[in-house]
Design a binder for these strands. Structure first.
Lengths: 334, 334
DNA sequence: TTGCACGATGGCAGCGCTGTCAAATATGCC
DNA sequence: GGCATATTTGACAGCGCTGCCATCGTGCAA
């Protein structure tokens, strides 16, 4: 545990050239079993850790990738980080967690600066950075590998890990229809998120598949936040007759709906059913616990990291979503 | 925006030695204004970004510090990251966000490995990593600078950014006492967090200052989670007569209390007042919105990063807390 | 026996910067 | 004007590794 032993000390003690130590550290072949064991023993004993900076500088690869994010949800960011971090460290890569401002005009140049400074081997993009076409183009131009988590635009291009937002939203809506609801409000999220429109699409498809006319007045605009969900809910609940169910595009907005229901003494789920989307921490912290569509956020990030670092992986993976039926949905009244 | 111009190209084009370019990049003095301008112009034009790895290897400093965390709360982690990141990037440092397992027997050696590999200039510790004495000792031994955010143990030693947990808990309790509550339950958090005991201490002091006897039966053990808060609340509410207020050691547990109250048809705040601690995102997402003690998480992390990187800062700073009175507290019944 | 492929190792340049020292030039003061 | 001192610049080693090539030894077919 003493301070910074060098590779040369190791080689001296092990009685081999420092090049051989390097081979052992990098798991190269052409090292005899016995030599390898001896070197490893010395490395462990001295607690030797190779300098990342030196490897980066000398080698072709830095063993560093970055996860770029710009999402206001702590829950989402936290779990994306964990998933990506896990796969990276399993494969011996360092992951740089890099918040960015996807709306900044300097986005592309900031990311390029990071890539150059850190000699990145690749980047992982999470929504909404996934949609920044200018960035994708520049990454392509430079030939820098990247994966996207839940991309909306240019879905088929390159590597990506996704869920089927359309199908998931369809299932949510069908759950409500099966409970007898016919007048179902929908609160959509931020315009800039492609998933917003896909979820709306799924909602629409389910209605139509069950012979319920799509009514534009039942769609309210939200901004993914608690308050925007509440505001949208107030608008929807003004209608006569009022909808018996509301499907919110994410859990934060659903929590907003729930608060408005409490405020207005609307019983949930007796008079109003509510469904969210994400299954964030919030879903189990509100009362009653929220029925919501589980999105496997960690697993998406894990899969994305794997796509980028495991050479033989299929370039696109789609993960399963799952409806979590809890206590905010029930049979339609009357 | 093309790929990796080198410092030598820059120097050739600017017509100076590459050492001079290095001086400009590092903002050293002894460079004439005219030369500086010329070099900067070329740097900007070529979009040159110095290699971090090379600087680290050649220089004494890496301009890299790490933030170590091991906290189950996405909210907390998210905001700590933002605060620390902000100050680091303002000062030209890269911040490595590093989750660790503070319970692992390898904690110390894992952290030392990180320090060696990345040539860290320092580390920022957040709770509960702040309490790992073995780690602190080893950092001291190696002379590696570190700051702690909200440390419990060895408070006075070294650099730290904190709030006054005892005073904050006292204020929370006093708020309830002023509302007429005399039977106030307290749900404490994880035993391993020092703040748990400080908050209990503040609760106790306030009671005693107002001539209310401290009753051990009114203290329930929680584990900082939503469910543990609910369990503790059920126990407290069994008592006859039952407490008219509950002070939970954090917002997650307070949300659990709130859910139990809803479940048992106990009106909040009519029959039961509830206060949390943290002012996390949750506080405004539950219904009714939670009265809670605001902890300036971001600012703490910002201040911590500043302590470590700004050479002349006072080694200890204490930031202000603030009681956020929302809708879960009201006058005591009867 | 010779020849040759291949496994195991070592030697050395060089990645792109910073630190140190020395040299060249400018400035100040008696 | 002359010398001391400060400012500006350059030369060069070397940080700790990897990539490439050379070298040595061994087993095996001819």
């Amino acid at each position: 545990m003493s301070s910074r032993p060098t590779i040369k000390e190791v080689s001296k003690i092990a009685g081999v050239s420092f090049k051989t130590v390097s081979r052992v550290l990098n798991n190269e072949k052409h090292v005899s079993e016995e030599t390898r064991r001896r070197v490893e023993e010395v490395v462990a004993r001295l607690n030797f850790r190779p300098s990342h900076a030196a490897r980066t500088l000398a080698g072709r690869r830095s063993f560093q990738v970055a996860l770029l994010y710009d999402n206001p949800s702590p829950y989402y960011v936290y779990h994306i980080q964990i998933g990506a971090q896990k796969r990276c460290s399993e494969l011996g890569y360092r992951l740089l967690l890099q918040p960015v401002d996807s709306q900044s005009p300097d986005l592309v140049s900031n990311v390029m600066a990071l890539i150059d400074e850190a000699h990145l081997d690749g980047v992982i993009l999470s929504p909404p950075v996934t949609e920044m076409i200018g960035l994708l183009d520049e990454l392509d131009r430079r030939g820098l590998p990247y994966v996207r988590i839940a991309p909306g635009a240019r879905k088929e291009a390159g590597m990506a890990a996704t869920i089927d937002d359309v199908a998931a939203a369809r299932e949510v809506t069908e759950h409500l229809i099966e409970l007898g609801h016919r007048s179902i409000g929908f609160i959509r999220g931020l315009e800039s998120h492609v998933s917003t429109w896909e979820r709306l699409q799924g909602y629409r498809e389910a209605l139509e598949a069950h012979g319920i006319a799509f009514d534009e007045d039942l769609v309210a605009a939200g901004e993914n936040s608690f308050t925007s969900g509440g505001d949208a809910a107030r608008k929807l609940l003004e209608r006569q007759p009022r909808p018996t169910a509301i499907f919110a595009g994410n859990d934060d907005m659903a929590a907003g709906v729930l608060a408005v229901a409490h405020e207005s003494d609307v019983d949930v789920p007796g008079q109003l059913s509510i469904v969210g989307f994400d299954d964030s921490d919030l879903a189990k912290a509100v009362w009653p616990p929220l029925t919501t569509m589980r999105q496997p956020v960690r697993e998406l990030a894990y899969a994305a990291a794997n796509l980028m670092l495991a050479p033989d992986a299929e370039p696109q993976v789609m993960l399963e979503h799952k409806l979590m039926v809890r206590a905010t949905t029930g049979p339609a009244p009357r």
